[in-house]
Design a protein around this nucleic acid. Structure first.
Lengths: 222, 222
DNA sequence: TATATAGTTGACCGCCGGTCATTTAATATT
DNA sequence: AATATTAAATGACCGGCGGTCAACTATATA
């Protein structure tokens, strides 16, 4: 039940506070993976972390600032993982597949990315938002640099690819968020619709089209 | 305050009930345009509609079923508008621009589309969900048919274009959902980021790339 | 006018995110 | 060792949420 193992009693030094904050984030991530964004409650998190609800608000101003922190962590974590999968010469398809696969493997990144702009950012202080955007800029630039050599594009093109992949990813994985209707309670026409919106081919096919489009524009000088 | 003009007293016939339901939906749409999805409350809606809260639940099982209905209405409305803008021979760019412009013009369609799969569909009965999916299928097919002649693509290609445009639209307009920070309280690097994610060029550029990609695949027989 | 039917109501429920006076553990001072 | 000081932690409390349902009452019928 109690996931706060680092500190048993009061956190006094800033070091101890950082540890406690970290422990809360770990518990929150586990809990989030269990129940998802909408069901996640601060009272439940407090219980799971072995703290009182009020204590959570000593470490995070709002529920959304907590989620923004989780998002940042997952963005950084995923970026590193993705970059490690990139080699010096790749096809657009291989690039897109690796991007898709690594985002899917991280159980936190995509669900938070999808909710970032229309939910999470709306209950967060402006300085905190600015800080988060800067983390985003930094990660995008890091990915763009490796993308440049992976796909043999100039810096500008690589940057556009990375930004566009993010956009496409959000759109393509939207369908994965539908309620799980494992059983065969759906009529065949609707089942067919759902399979035709399968996110994996939807993403990889169009990612390749976009990358090739950007590459072609670079050649012709558009 | 009271937007229910059609019926002053009890709705007894199924006709009157339909009228009242319709009046509630109209009030809900106005109210939604005012405050958006997260702030929208059933108690406030009841007040604005001049009804008791409990009465709303005679016409809609849940808040989400109400939103699903608003979404369906806006989908149908937008589809018709969009189809009317299509001519028999268009460039990919003109097609994409018209699609973008018409969705932006409808203040309800996009905000609900974005929340459809990960919020709205999760508190809705399965029969109602199936019904909604069928409306979606029908609209997609109608748009695909006109798209086919507008972009000179075969049926299959046109269908893929329409589905993909939806995905891209959701991704590209994500940034528009960020909190409005009109003033100059943001540092220039973050401002630059935001403008570089401007949804209009993001959508139209990549829409054109994807359409041309699909067209090219058709020619080469991929 | 009396009765039956069914549309409407709003007090009520459990739970939410968030607050803050109070408690109390850990440190500093004597 | 005893005491004073500090601030981390607490949890009762707040307003508001989506949703429910016994009671009420407007209307149609007899």
């Amino acid at each position: 039940m109690n996931s706060v193992v680092a500190i048993n009693h009061r956190a006094r030094s800033s070091e101890q506070k950082a540890l406690r904050r970290h422990a809360v984030l770990e518990t929150a991530e586990m809990y989030f993976k269990e129940v998802g964004y909408e069901t996640f409650s601060m009272a439940q998190l407090a219980k799971k972390a072995g703290l009182a609800k009020g204590t959570l608000y000593l470490y995070f101003k709002t529920r959304e600032e907590l989620f923004l922190t989780l998002y940042e962590q997952s963005l950084i974590r995923w970026s590193q993982t993705f970059i490690e999968t990139l080699s010096n010469t790749m096809t657009s398809k291989a690039y897109a597949q690796s991007l898709y696969k690594t985002t899917q493997a991280d159980g936190v990144f995509l669900p938070l990315l999808i909710r970032l702009e229309h939910v999470i950012e709306h209950n967060v202080s402006i300085p905190r938002l600015v800080e988060s955007k800067r983390v985003f800029i930094h990660q995008v630039e890091a990915i763009a640099e490796v993308t440049s050599s992976a796909l043999r594009l100039n810096t500008e093109q690589a940057l556009e690819v990375v930004k566009t992949m993010g956009v496409l990813l959000i759109g393509a994985t939207q369908t994965d968020q539908s309620p799980a209707l494992d059983n065969e309670e759906l009529p065949t026409d609707v089942q067919h619709l759902i399979t035709s919106f399968s996110s994996e081919p939807l993403f990889t096919k169009n990612a390749a089209r976009i990358i090739e489009g950007i590459r072609a524009e670079g050649i012709s000088g558009v």
